[in-house]
Design a protein around this nucleic acid. Structure first.
Lengths: 204, 204
DNA sequence: GCTAATTTTGGACAGTCGTCAAGATTTTCT
DNA sequence: AGAAAATCTTGACGACTGTCCAAAATTAGC
């Protein structure tokens, strides 16, 4: 077996955990590039500095690796707009900052976003991810809601929709823009920015 | 080669086309059940009455079969709420009819819907479907817009959002409800019905 | 009813997949 | 330094994939 399951020095445990992180990172890279349907363990290993056999040294099987990777992915995924909320000093600023931030991450991180949608969709067929996916989805909803709530505070009007509706709507817009952008429609991000800002005013 | 490419009797051509329909139907069945990532030609053949070899008699390769299946899928997909629009005699009727219809198809056709989202997502990675997916998405947008426009007519107020925003929002709601429903949350359909009706009033 | 064309079968192929384990390598501890 | 433990590589396995093809079964034309 391995050190990690025994009572061993801190260093050893950390190193084991660190390798798992490292391999999970490679897994995310492969998933973002190839999509779930075509991501194999050998592809993942090739993105790392190791051979394919090592994956079963740090993970019991493919499902455990991917599940771990999804959980890791979560961290990057659910605080994206908090800076915008913190920085905005007025309703107008928040509205435009939110739209601009969504457009920016659409342009910059398209591969990562399609990975998220791919995983979320995969959970419609595979039970193994479903729990984590639902959890991340909830946190994303909270993240969006923090924006809407703050906007409502600024305008001193109550929000007109539930957190669920707000999240679904913004997420739907983003997903559509992602598809268009990957299809080569360069104006997709601009449209998204405008649509997001407009939608926000309808929700409070 | 085959009859279909020569000048042959009408009957023969029809039969060839008919087999293609039949096999595409089996492909959709397999896709809905297993998801794109796990649908193999042998699985598809098993859903039909034929052996796996026959698929390459009617289709050049897997991509052509799946593309054909996606196009076939389109037909069922883009007229779902037209009956509701036609039947409704008032704004209230339309609002509740729309919500009820969405909730109903969520309950009844969950497998088919997750197939659609799976294919749409796959087109983020594979170029081959992208054109058809974008086309279907557009038609779905039109379908939703016919509901919103009719609602605006009934209430004699102008719609407050663009077709893009309306579609993205309703689609986002539906997608989220689908995930929850497949995760065993039985109240997802009821929530969807209420959210859809509420959202409609915010859009006009 | 016989021949020819069409349709279908089922096996073979070259790859790829997840998984595993034996052995080589590196690190850790005394 | 040497022994022990941890880490990594490599090759193999059985199963599965898309594709192709020769032969069997079916149908159509005369």
């Amino acid at each position: 077996m391995t050190q990690a399951k025994e009572r061993i020095s801190r260093r050893a445990v950390d190193k084991f955990a660190q390798r798992r992180e490292q391999l999970a990172e490679s897994a995310l890279q492969a998933l973002a590039e190839l999509g779930y349907a075509r991501t194999s363990l050998r592809e993942i290993a090739q993105k790392s500095d190791f051979s394919h056999g090592v994956l079963h040294y740090y993970f019991a099987d493919k499902v455990e690796l991917l599940t771990y990777a999804v959980r890791k992915f979560e961290e990057v995924c659910v605080t994206r707009y908090d800076d915008v909320v913190a920085a905005a000093g007025s309703a107008e600023e928040l509205k435009h900052g939110f739209g601009a931030a969504m457009a920016a991450t659409l342009r910059t991180d398209a591969a990562m976003h399609r990975l998220w949608y791919d995983l979320r969709n995969q959970s419609l067929f595979e039970e193994s991810f479903r729990g984590d996916v639902l959890d991340i989805d909830e946190q994303r909803q909270d993240m969006v809601w923090r924006v809407v709530r703050r906007y409502a505070e600024f305008t001193e009007r109550p929000a007109q929709v539930s957190p669920e509706v707000a999240y679904a709507a913004f997420d739907g817009l983003f997903q559509r823009a992602l598809l268009q952008q990957l299809a080569g429609q360069d104006e997709a991000a601009d449209r998204l920015e405008a649509d997001v800002a407009a939608l926000l005013t309808h929700f409070v």
